[in-house]
Amino acid sequence: MTKLKLNELMKSMDWTMFGIIASIFLIWQIGTVGNWSTECWILLCICLLGVRKDQIDVDWKRFFLIGIPLLGVFYYFYGSGNGFWWKIANWMFENNRHPWRWDSYMNAIPLNSGGWARWISTPFLDRAMVWVYNYGFVLSLWICIVRSFWTRSVKKMLSYALSGHMLQFPLILPFYNLILLHEVWYVNKQPDLLHRVFADENSLLVAVMNCFPSMHTSISFAMLLLALREKDRIFKYMMVMYCGAIIFSTLYLQIHWVIDVIAGMLFAYGTVKLTDFLIRIGASHVVPAKFKRFYSKRAAPASSELTM
Results as ranks from 00 to 15, higher is better:
236 K>P: 02
238 M>Y: 07
227 A>K: 00
191 P>S: 12
203 S>R: 12
259 I>P: 04
183 E>F: 04
235 F>D: 08
256 H>M: 07
212 F>P: 01
184 V>G: 14
258 V>I: 09
246 I>K: 06
239 M>A: 00
188 N>S: 15
257 W>Y: 05
183 E>L: 10
211 C>W: 03
196 R>G: 09
232 D>W: 02
228 L>H: 05
199 A>P: 09
222 A>Q: 07
210 N>W: 12
227 A>D: 02
196 R>V: 10
219 I>L: 11
241 M>D: 11
195 H>D: 13
215 M>R: 13
259 I>R: 12
181 L>A: 13
227 A>W: 02
185 W>M: 13
221 F>L: 10
224 L>H: 05
206 V>I: 09
184 V>N: 12
231 K>D: 00
219 I>G: 03
222 A>H: 05
218 S>V: 02
246 I>P: 08
199 A>K: 11
204 L>P: 11
191 P>K: 10
211 C>H: 10
241 M>Q: 13
216 H>K: 03
205 L>C: 10
235 F>Y: 06
185 W>Y: 14
216 H>D: 01
217 T>F: 12
215 M>V: 13
205 L>Y: 11
259 I>F: 13
207 A>Q: 14
215 M>C: 08
200 D>M: 09
190 Q>L: 14
189 K>I: 15
223 M>P: 01
185 W>K: 06
202 N>H: 15
257 W>H: 05
204 L>G: 04
229 R>V: 02
247 I>L: 04
186 Y>P: 14
223 M>E: 09
257 W>Q: 08
249 S>L: 01
195 H>I: 07
196 R>I: 11
194 L>T: 10
194 L>Y: 02
241 M>G: 13
193 L>C: 11
233 R>A: 11
246 I>G: 04
207 A>Y: 12
257 W>V: 06
201 E>Q: 10
191 P>F: 01
242 Y>L: 06
251 L>C: 07
197 V>P: 01
233 R>D: 10
184 V>P: 14
196 R>N: 14
229 R>N: 09
185 W>I: 09
209 M>N: 14
226 L>I: 03
217 T>P: 00
242 Y>N: 06
218 S>K: 11
207 A>W: 12
247 I>S: 00
181 L>M: 15
225 L>E: 02
239 M>R: 01
191 P>T: 01
231 K>T: 02
241 M>W: 12
207 A>V: 01
223 M>C: 05
253 L>V: 03
197 V>D: 14
220 S>L: 09
233 R>W: 12
205 L>K: 10
252 Y>M: 04
219 I>F: 07
182 H>P: 14
247 I>M: 08
193 L>W: 04
239 M>C: 01
197 V>Q: 14
245 A>S: 09
228 L>F: 05
206 V>Q: 06
233 R>I: 14
227 A>L: 04
226 L>D: 06
208 V>L: 08
222 A>G: 07
215 M>I: 15
